[in-house]
Each structure stands twice: as C-alpha cells, then as structure tokens.
C-alpha cells in the first residue's frame, strides 16, 4: 500500500490531538508548552505534506515551496514564543514558587 496524503493528514491529526490534550490538561506550565509545540509540529507536517502532494498540475516548484516557507516562519515564531513563555514561567516561579497552571489563580476573584 503506497503512502498517500491521507496518511500524513491522519498522522498530523493524531499528533495535534495529543498536543491539544496536553495543552488543556497538563498541570505544569512546561507540560502545557510541550503540548503547544506538539501542535505546531502537527500543523507543520500537514503543510509539508500538502506541498509534497499538490492539487494542481500547473504549479511551479517555487509555488509548491510556499508551504516550506510558511513552515520556516512557523518555526521562527514558535522559537520566539517558547523563549518568552519560559521567561514568563521563570517570573511566575520567582513570585509564587510554583509553575502549576491551576495555582496561578490570583486574577480569579
């Protein structure tokens, strides 16, 4: 059985769901961040898969590589986001001695 686009899409869907569950349910802030990075990975995988299996026959290689360029930008933004998020985690830890997201509830009342 040859590997088709659907294989990659379902793999991306499963990876995205695992990441979504982690981002929703994990208690530790770093765990939430791991889930977010996993979702980024799933979406990037779908981008690359759509770029490898094009829909129109008259697309040039440069047009098909737009997906790759988009993935580069996603990775850049993910790196910036991870740096800022981990700095925020350090800041919360310095004030509260915890990075559990269910104990960051000062704004709750």
């Amino acid at each position: 059985m040859a590997i088709e686009l659907e294989h990659y899409l379902i793999l991306g869907a499963l990876l995205f769901s695992i990441g979504l569950y982690m981002a929703l349910a994990k208690r530790n802030f770093v765990g939430v961040l791991m889930g977010i990075e996993m979702m980024f990975n799933a979406v990037n995988l779908t981008f690359i898969a759509f770029s490898r299996f094009p829909r129109f026959a008259d697309m040039t290689d440069a047009e098909r590589l737009s997906g790759h360029v988009f993935v580069i930008f996603v990775i850049t933004v993910a790196a910036a986001e991870a740096a800022v998020a981990l700095a925020l985690a350090m800041l919360v830890y310095r004030n509260r001695e915890t990075i559990d997201v269910d104990r960051m509830d000062l704004l709750k009342w």
Partner: peptide
C-alpha cells in the same frame, strides 16, 4: 522547588 510531576488538572 516547583512540582516536577507531569500530572493533569
């Protein structure tokens, strides 16, 4: 000193 476990909420 934060929790090192990876538990769920």
């Amino acid at each position: 000193r934060a929790g090192r476990n990876n538990a769920e909420t």
